[in-house]
């Protein structure tokens, strides 16, 4: 049974690695931010599955913190970037 949860966690990690393609590809910052947000939720699920697989319930607190705090990065993102088309992405103050 524990092996099943570990296999599910591995499957979710592979999902994250596949999603990295979007981070590398872009094309604009918002796409990368969306990918990071998806990784955050996938990571929460992975940590919960690992807590079950390794039978250490306190790892659930790490998942709880990820769920609670990922939105802060998005708030900082919209404070600091302005959405531009890909071609003038490299102007000042990106």
């Amino acid at each position: 049974m524990n092996n099943f949860f570990l296999a599910m966690a591995l499957f979710l990690v592979l999902n994250i690695l596949a999603g990295l393609w979007r981070v590398l590809k872009g094309p604009n910052p918002a796409d990368r931010m969306v990918a990071a947000q998806l990784f955050g939720t996938t990571g929460v699920a992975t940590l919960l599955l690992l807590a079950q697989a390794l039978e250490s319930p306190f790892i659930r607190n790490a998942a709880l913190l990820f769920a609670l705090l990922t939105v802060m990065t998005v708030l900082a993102f919209i404070r600091n970037t302005s959405y531009r088309l890909p071609e003038d992405e490299h102007n000042e103050n990106l």
Binding site: G40, L69, M72, T73, A76, R79, N80, T81, L94
Partner: peptide
């Protein structure tokens, strides 16, 4: 999840 992202984004700005 919380602070590193905020710090890096502010640096980017």
């Amino acid at each position: 999840a919380g602070l590193a992202g905020v710090l890096l984004m502010d640096t980017l700005g």
